[in-house]
């Protein structure tokens, strides 16, 4: 068994191929190997949620998945959220509008969590959102502005006026 493998996967809609050490987790692969540094590492033991990305549409902790396990999968990171023309995703816009980020370190993981959650729950209540967000730690905001931003994004995604 060699210590590294060549893998192919889709990242943000693009096919990518690269060599990865088998012991490397997905977050280090995205950041170090592919240069997608928008995914952040806050704890590397699966608690803080900063490294959350979407794998086949599901929010997962990228520090708790080996890069080799992503072979053949579709991964979406913060860099893949905005439209091709640069227009921000409604969640991104809402976070800017509602001061949903301060240092911005936890934000990419929070957005990944919310992309999946709002897809399945287009009209959530504030308390449901808090439970959905409980696996993402933010040390800056106290969360109120994040919940407000998520509610606004949900309205925008439903096609209502923000």
């Amino acid at each position: 068994m060699s210590e590294s493998r060549h893998i192919a996967l889709h990242v943000n809609g693009e096919r990518r191929e690269a060599e990865t050490p088998v012991r490397q987790h997905l977050a280090d692969f995205l950041r170090g190997t592919l240069g997608l540094t928008g995914t952040h590492l806050g704890c590397e033991h699966g608690v803080c949620g900063a490294c959350t990305v979407l794998v086949d549409g599901r929010a997962v902790r990228a520090c708790l998945m080996l890069a080799v396990q992503a072979a053949g999968r579709a991964v979406t990171t913060i860099e893949g959220l905005a439209a091709a023309d640069g227009t921000l995703h409604p969640l991104q816009q809402a976070f800017c509008d509602h001061h949903g980020l301060q240092c911005g370190f936890c934000t990419p993981g929070i957005l990944a969590t919310l992309v999946e959650y709002l897809a399945e729950n287009p009209d959530p209540g504030a308390e449901d959102l808090r439970i959905a967000l409980s696996g993402n730690i933010c040390r800056c905001t106290g969360y109120d502005s994040i919940v407000a931003a998520a509610l606004a994004a949900a309205r925008a995604l439903r096609g209502e006026a923000a």
Partner: peptide, 23 residues
């Protein structure tokens, strides 16, 4: 006034540059 933050444009797209992003 609550002007738009100048930090957000990069951070919200994952284009911030934190120390671990410097390679």
């Amino acid at each position: 006034r609550d002007v738009a933050r100048v930090e957000d444009a990069a951070l919200i797209r994952g284009r911030g540059r934190f120390v671990d992003d410097i390679a």
